[in-house]
């Protein structure tokens, strides 16, 4: 009992981390696209749980709502609509393999860089309470809002314009001329 109280959060972390990793492996190894999509969903949910363990409630629930609720439903919709047969053994994405390798190496390098350089004390001190400009402690969603709309307003707006460009591009490409 004492052990559970003290290390419960750590145990949960390992449960969800292993879950997320296993599901992620499932996404790229399973043959049936429906199973891949469900693995991806499980992976998203596990990551949401990890956010929750770090007291990032806002991020966790947005993860479930946006990725779990919106994007994955869209994926499943498309999979059910276009292809219900197993993928043939031939590798569909073969021609993209070199690019994928380069991107994967870059991503691993980035993660390693962050992992080796982060300020351990700052991270350990962070969870739970956030302090706004006026010095009063506010909740998690308020903290996200302050960061996004005050400290990083310009990058945030640029990112939204990018997303809009992608959306308009998709509509233009998808339209029958």
């Amino acid at each position: 009992m004492e052990f559970l109280v003290q290390h419960g959060a750590d145990l949960l972390f390992y449960v969800f981390a292993v879950g997320a990793l296993a599901a992620a492996v499932g996404v790229i190894t399973l043959r049936n696209p429906m199973y891949c999509a469900i693995s991806l969903l499980v992976c998203f949910l596990c990551v949401a749980a990890l956010f929750l363990l770090r007291h990032a409630e806002f991020l966790a629930l947005v993860q479930v709502f946006v990725y779990g609720g919106g994007i994955m439903v869209l994926f499943l919709f498309v999979i059910m609509l276009v292809n219900l047969h197993r993928l043939r053994e031939s590798s569909v994405f073969g021609e993209y393999a070199p690019m994928a390798v380069v991107l994967a190496v870059l991503l691993v390098a980035l993660v390693l860089f962050v992992f080796l350089n982060y300020d351990q004390q700052a991270v350990a001190a962070a969870p739970g309470a956030f302090v706004s400009v006026e010095g009063q402690v506010v909740g998690n969603s308020e903290a996200v809002a302050w960061t996004l709309y005050r400290d990083y307003l310009l990058p945030f707006e640029i990112a939204s314009v990018f997303l809009l460009v992608a959306m308009v591009g998709a509509v233009v490409l998808g339209r029958k001329s």
């Binding site: 806002f58 947005v62 439903v73 499943l76 059910m80 909740g139 998690n140």
Partner: peptide, 19 residues
């Protein structure tokens, strides 16, 4: 403190049962 998001998030999970 994120009750509204909680409602939204779990309401969307329900549709997976049907799908």
């Amino acid at each position: 403190n994120v009750g509204l998001l909680f409602v939204l998030a779990f309401a969307t999970i329900g549709v997976y049962g049907i799908i």
